[in-house]
């Protein structure tokens, strides 16, 4: 039987309360409005590597039981607010991902997400940097493109290298995959990134990696200067991936196409397809103002702030005790 006690110490709970206060003051000073959106949604994410929890709603107005999904992030709902003239907004909320637990992962976690009108990904990276300096007392961050990171640490161009070059690099670094068939090009890049690059960046100070390959664009705009890359960034610090941000794609047509491509990939890999969030697409159709947005893992931030070695030290009742 699992103990009933929390997996945290009191200090971690105090640190969480203080961190949330600092975050709210940070956005208050910048005139960014705190908002609240539902955790349950009719539509969900199509991304083949993201799996949402779902639940049955027996009281839908249709009279038939319907499926509702727990959000994997508040992105779609917050963008609908942006489309409804909310101005710049932020939210601290729970997000849910149907996946395993680990040192840096709990299926239910706390997310900070914010959107800034008129920002591109560079302006937003600067703001994320400012928030890290304020909350973790970090030195100003480094910035590297995805391509520079691969060239510096692997001597590989991730935008043009052959599949064989990636396989060879994996072999040289002793990255030994059980059943290596059907590893996609992007998965190989991600493995090399996780195993070789991640341990070397963001040690002394946070490190932003930006301009991801277009195939990993997610909801980011493609770069007008180089369509091989997307205006997406991540920030790494002391072994943690802390945040992921986009210069937001605001073309409804392209967004629908990306969702449909995701579902095609799901079919190819024998995964169930997911219902596209039509409310979100209709909002995009009405017009999403030019903006950049980012999601940050608050539990990971707290881990770094308190020196925790496992996420359960900052979550009162991690999933096995929930």
């Amino acid at each position: 039987m699992q103990p009933w006690q929390p997996t945290t110490k009191h200090d971690a709970r105090v640190a969480r309360a203080e961190l949330l206060r600092t975050i709210r003051e940070f956005f208050y000073a910048r005139n960014v409005l705190e908002v609240d959106t539902p955790l349950l949604s009719n539509g969900t994410v199509t991304d083949e590597h993201l799996d949402a929890f779902d639940t049955q709603f027996n009281f839908a107005s249709s009279g038939k039981p319907s499926k509702l999904y727990l959000q994997t992030s508040p992105e779609y709902a917050m963008k609908r607010l942006l489309c409804a003239d909310s101005g710049s907004i932020y939210q601290v909320c729970k997000a849910f991902r149907h996946e395993g637990e680990g040192r840096w992962h709990n299926p239910e976690f706390t997310m900070l997400e914010w959107y800034r009108l008129g920002f591109d990904h560079f302006a937003l990276m600067d703001e994320v940097d400012a928030l890290l300096q304020e909350t973790l007392n970090t030195a100003p961050a480094d910035k590297l493109t995805y391509q520079q990171a691969f060239q510096r640490y692997l001597n590989i161009d991730p935008l043009s290298a052959d599949d064989d070059v990636l396989l060879k690099a994996m072999k040289e670094r002793n990255i030994d995959i059980h059943a290596p068939q059907n590893l996609s090009y992007d998965t190989k890049l991600q493995l090399l990134f996780s195993y070789v690059i991640e341990p070397k960046i963001g040690i002394e100070r946070p490190c932003f990696v930006y301009n991801f390959p277009a195939s990993q664009a997610a909801l980011a705009k493609l770069s007008p200067a180089d369509e091989r890359v997307a205006e997406r960034f991540e920030v790494y610090y002391q072994g943690a991936e802390l945040a992921n941000g986009f210069h937001e794609l605001n073309a409804a047509k392209e967004q629908r196409l990306r969702f449909e491509t995701d579902n095609e990939k799901r079919k190819e890999n024998g995964l169930p397809t997911k219902p596209i969030d039509e409310n979100f697409l209709r909002a995009l159709d009405a017009g999403l103002p030019a903006c950049a947005g980012v999601a940050m893992g608050i539990d990971r931030l707290l881990m770094l702030k308190t020196g925790a070695s496992h996420i359960k030290e900052v979550i009162n009742f991690s999933v096995s005790r929930a």
Partner: peptide, 25 residues
């Protein structure tokens, strides 16, 4: 788990006959 990608388990293993220790993903 990379930010937007496939999740993996990185496992350290000892082969019981040869005694070799290796890492497998």
């Amino acid at each position: 788990k990379p930010g937007k990608g496939q999740a993996f388990n990185r496992v350290k293993i000892r082969k019981l006959i040869s005694g070799k220790v290796l890492e497998k993903t």
